[in-house]
Nucleic acid binder design. Structure first.
Lengths: 222, 222
DNA sequence: ATTACTAGTAGACGAGTAA
DNA sequence: TTTACTCGTCTACTAGTAA
């Protein structure tokens, strides 16, 4: 969660191509495009840097700045919200990937009453304790990115006496007709070719899946 | 030019459907979704209201809010910038519309040296003093809206001793192969089915156009 | 329950300056 | 030219209160 005023600066850097590689900027140039003072830009850049949303190389003649994965994620989410406002086009997406073994963390989280209830309310099924992890085929990675534009449900986090549990986003989908949900834990930086799924039934058993089996996930949005 | 902090509030209203009709909100509900205080929301709503970006009906049980054309335009521009960051897809668009008579304002502006030079630099031709106005056919109106996502060039305004002249945006296009540019004056609220074009030659003469002739404008983006 | 005022405070801004 | 510090000002915030 960057400071509200940092976002325009991040966006300006991205518009200059900062998501694709380092771009040279100066506090002055950014200040004119954003209609503020160089001092403020300097402060904002420092803030973005310490929030790990950009990386930079400062030298006496200026600085070259690059947007990090985390920064791009924030921009992508912002983009998704605007898409939701204007493009109310439905869509149908297919993700294809290979079954892989997760770390078993999903099983633990899904066993917690809080998440169980939340998913029951939001997805229409009580999650089987355990998640199915897929490594997407290369062609599905851009499709996965597009999904960020759809309307994900946010599952709030909670905390007990020992620790806090983060929020997560989920999106309904189907695998061979079985209702499932893609879930993305709150703040973790997932590899972009990995997705995690939950369902009301043990998917591996139900579909007879083994590691490396290729399956399709269907996201219908209507 | 709304206050920077107003934008998230405007966006939140739009996400609730405020672009399509009035939505009921409360300062409290918005404050939780935006992570701020109800007081701030109250102030922001007032600010958006007085900037004519929203209209609202306040009653003792809450308020219903709707995003105005002007508000939508700001959001659409924001959306366009994010599109420019992420979707670097080219595209090819055709606008179809009927030739109509403008107010002759375009002729005046295009006769000013400042604009002449700017357009020469940015569009590759010195604009013939006079603009061609089109009333788009209905099917072209949504296409026109999509164009906002493309990379328009901003022509800065200027001021002489008497008055100030606003900025404008332009986008290269072609009519029957002749290089032209769509131009949109800075802050005016154009009817969404009207577009204005400039070229290096007198288009009406060159193409033998009369009022109500239907022509096609080609926007190729590469 | 609302909205929106007032008041006090915290923090952001930009001018000036140094490196 | 840069970046980024300090510092005084002023804006924007939230708490409290009224309607």
């Amino acid at each position: 969660m960057p400071d509200a005023g940092d976002l325009p600066v991040l966006k300006a850097i991205a518009l200059l191509g900062g998501c694709r590689g380092p771009v040279r900027v100066s506090t002055q140039s950014l200040s004119t495009t954003l209609g503020t003072s160089p001092q403020t830009i300097s402060r904002r850049l420092k803030s973005l840097d310490s929030a790990h949303l950009i990386t930079r190389n400062v030298d006496p003649s200026g600085q070259s700045v690059e947007v990090t994965k985390g920064g791009e994620e924030i921009l992508r989410r912002e983009h998704a919200e605007y898409c939701r406002i204007f493009s109310r086009t439905g869509g149908h997406f297919i993700l294809k990937g290979a079954v892989i073994s997760g770390l078993g963390e999903g099983r633990y989280y899904m066993s917690l009453d809080h998440y169980k209830n939340q998913f029951r309310i939001n997805c229409g099924f009580e999650p089987y304790p355990g998640t199915l992890n897929l490594r997407l085929i290369q062609q599905s990675v851009p499709v996965r990115k597009k999904l960020d534009s759809l309307e994900w449900t946010t599952i709030p986090g909670f905390s007990d006496e020992h620790r806090t549990f983060g929020e997560a986003r989920c999106l309904s989908c189907r695998i061979q007709g079985i209702p499932c949900a893609l879930i993305v834990p709150g703040r973790t930086h997932y590899p972009e070719d990995i997705v995690e799924l939950i369902a009301g039934v043990p998917l591996r058993e139900e579909l007879g899946l083994e590691d490396n089996d290729i399956i399709e996930v269907e996201i219908g949005y209507d």
